[in-house]
Simulated scan of single mutants.
Amino acid sequence: MSRSRKPDWLKMRPPAGREFTDIKQTLRDHDLNTVCEEANCPNLGECWSGRNGSTDGGTATFMLMGHRCSRGCNFCDVETGGMEPLDPDEPANVAEAIAEIGLDYVVLTSVDRDDLPDQGAGHFAETIREIKQRHPGILVEVLIPDFQGEPDLVRKIIDAEPDVIAHNVETVERLQWPVRDRRAGYEQSLSVLEQVARESDIYTKTSLMLGVGEYHHEIWQTLSDLAEIDLDIVTLGQYLQPSRTHLDVERYVHPDEFDTWRDVAEEEFEFLYCASGPMVRSSYKAGELFVDAVLRDGKSVEEAREAARSVASD
């Protein structure tokens, strides 16, 4: 299935434009990684090129703690193994790059660092604080690892006070393996999200890939489980195989089906917002616009949903 021709709705705009090249150069100057590049995100050109003069702004998702991951998930294009020491200057470098790029909403994620005593939680928290101290008006969303489900490590992120804490369940319970590394797990991921929802007023968010062999009733059950722990925001997108050595695509999900799941998520399970579409990823500008509109502009949830959907449909 993965070698079959992609449908027309999965055509991507190639990266281009002055804003794109400027951001790329800024990242190189500060020796920074982005998940946009490392994971071959299909929206890289759209997100990076939509900055100056646009209504939605540009965005980049900074990937902390190196470009090598201690885990090997079968859907992910990030390199595995060969872990390197943390860069103590990275938190300051990220903050400086944000100022140069001119972002007012930033997303931070990281590789898994199971090799470190605190799995990198302290470094992650330091980066959040550095950004907030230098740029008090900026909104910070973080996409964190599971930290092996250790509550004290998750609490370090909560105490740093980002505006959104995301952690991805990635797929339905039955398919956690072979999709994810065996050290990850469905219940473990739910526990991380539930802790954030229980111990803070910070928005919670997760992402689910479709097209890896899940059944409709399993998607419904996953949404039900997420609603049960009071999750705020969910994104659903099409899995795309990074290379022939990665997990096969079982099917290409039609945009109409994504629309149906969005309606189910928002109307039946009453999530605050659901971004759902073939090219949607966990860090996606429509979802970021929703949070920005609610927190900064004071829009109602319905007004923020409408604004975010208009961006997603462009």
Rank of each mutant, 00 (worst) to 15 (best):
I158Y: 07
E266I: 10
D146A: 01
I202K: 06
W48I: 04
E270P: 00
Q188R: 11
V111R: 02
T80M: 13
S207M: 12
R281P: 06
D114V: 05
E187T: 12
L295N: 09
Y186E: 09
L32C: 14
P15M: 03
P88N: 01
R305Y: 05
S283F: 01
A293H: 10
K6P: 00
E194C: 11
E141G: 03
H30S: 07
R305L: 08
M83T: 12
Y284C: 12
M65P: 04
R183T: 15
L32F: 12
R281E: 01
H167P: 06
D152A: 06
I229D: 02
T21P: 02
Q241W: 01
T235N: 08
K285G: 08
P14A: 09
D292G: 01
R113Y: 10
E288A: 14
H216E: 14
H135D: 07
D201K: 15
Y186T: 09
D163Y: 10
E266F: 02
H217D: 15
T260K: 06
F75C: 03
P14Q: 12
I165K: 06
S283G: 02
Y252A: 03
L143A: 00
A308I: 05
E37G: 04
D292V: 04
E257H: 09
D263T: 11
T204R: 10
T206Q: 05
E250A: 14
P117A: 03
R180M: 13
L231Y: 04
M1G: 14
E84K: 15
P278R: 00
L10I: 07
K205N: 07
R262N: 05
M12E: 15
E79T: 06
L108R: 04
Y239W: 11
D181C: 14
K205G: 05
P178D: 13
P91S: 04
Y273P: 00
V291F: 05
A197M: 12
S243Q: 13
P242H: 10
E37A: 10
R129V: 15
G122L: 13
T80P: 02
G137T: 04
